[in-house]
């Protein structure tokens, strides 16, 4: 434990394990990003990459960097970070790995909201706002239907799965109710996809990440304290109720933003904080590390989506769903054995 001091105003203790893990993960994100830009038939060779990035790109390279893979990569990093952060916040509040926005229907709700905004109210309601409205509605439904807020993990998961199913059904209805060709465009999106992203998607997700990051940072210490249990946290002056409300709100905003640019990509929010926790082995929500791990996971999954020789160009969401689904199964079994479910 070292204390990082900036002048007399700022002093923040930093755990060594966490700092090392964050640095390594950040380096791996860079490696994965380079691979994303340089692998494959249209890839820019690593040797030419610095010139293309910093010296101005021309011709094919300009197309790959500016249109084909650049925005996709930048959106991927931002979305992965948003999902990792969102998952870490929600899991800390629910004190359960399964109390994650992608399990309990926040992502599915955001997807339904985004689909409604894009297909029923085109031009009237911006897609990100539609996603946010859907996410908030889904979360409110879960909150009400557990009868105990977010306290009871078992009820939370059951209610969440129900709300998730309702959201997906609603999305299907929206897709069927509109003309076939408009719906086809949406189908890839609804699985979670990073293909054909544009720079305005990148601006949306990064704007949200950069605006919420300072708020999350200010909340981090209080979230640490809520891990001690409500009464102790309250006795220490950490206001657990208000802290939870703030954390859930930020988590929903981040989730909705991620869904609005890339669709409901499954399981990044679930797995990233869990991996972060295992990397450091210590307590705490590991917010920074969860964001970095989320970014790494999503960029790697998208790399697989782009480069694996699977016919049909599967969207990245299918990959994360396949891998994350196994992990979800493992977690469910473990919680069931522990008797929390």
């Amino acid at each position: 434990m070292t204390v990082v001091k900036i002048g007399r105003v700022i002093a923040v203790p930093v755990g060594r394990n966490g700092a090392v893990a964050a640095a390594v993960t950040a380096a791996l994100v860079v490696v994965a990003a380079v691979a994303t830009l340089s692998l494959g038939r249209l890839g820019i060779p690593v040797a030419d990459l610095p010139q293309a990035l910093f010296g101005g790109a021309e011709g094919k390279e300009a197309f790959v960097l500016g249109r084909l893979r650049g925005p996709r990569l930048v959106v991927g990093i931002g979305t992965g970070a948003a999902l990792g952060l969102s998952g870490a916040l929600f899991q800390t509040v629910t004190r359960n790995p399964l109390g994650s926005p992608d399990v309990i229907g926040v992502s599915a709700g955001a997807g339904a909201g985004a689909a409604t905004a894009a297909l029923f109210l085109p031009g009237l309601l911006p897609v990100p706002l539609g996603a946010l409205a859907g996410a908030v509605l889904a979360m409110a439904l879960v909150y009400v239907s557990t009868g105990a807020g977010f306290r009871n993990p078992g009820r939370l998961i059951v209610a969440g799965i129900g709300v998730s199913a309702i959201s997906v059904a609603f999305t299907q209805y929206v897709v069927y109710a509109v003309e076939r060709d408009r719906a086809t465009v949406l189908m890839a999106y609804l699985n979670g996809s990073l293909s054909a992203r544009a720079w305005d998607h990148a601006v949306t997700i990064w704007l949200v990440v950069l605006l919420t990051a300072p708020l999350v940072a200010l909340l981090a210490r209080r979230l640490d304290m809520t891990e001690l249990g409500d009464e102790l946290a309250a006795g220490l002056g950490a206001e657990p109720g208000a802290t939870r409300t703030a954390a859930v709100s930020l988590s929903v905003v981040l989730s909705a933003a991620a869904v609005s640019v890339a669709g409901p990509i499954a399981f990044i929010a679930l797995t990233a904080p869990q991996i972060a926790r295992r990397l450091t082995g210590g307590p705490g929500p590991h917010l920074t590390l969860s964001a970095l791990v989320g970014a790494l996971l999503l960029v790697l999954a998208d790399l697989a989506a782009q480069q694996l020789p699977i016919p049909g160009n599967l969207p990245v969401g299918i990959h994360t769903m396949a891998v994350g689904g196994l992990y979800l199964g493992y977690l469910l079994t473990r919680e069931w054995r522990k008797g929390t479910l």
């Binding site: 640490d224 891990e227 001690l228 249990g229 009464e231 102790l232 309250a234 006795g235 220490l236 002056g237 950490a238 206001e239 926790r277 450091t280 082995g281 210590g282 307590p283 705490g284």
Partner: peptide, 22 residues
């Protein structure tokens, strides 16, 4: 304010929970 009061009075409740790995 919460922290201000907590500099005067400390409570050890019945069931505090220790965070994983602390």
């Amino acid at each position: 304010r919460g922290r201000q009061a907590a500099r005067h009075v400390a409570l050890l409740p019945q069931n505090p929970s220790a965070p994983d790995g602390i």
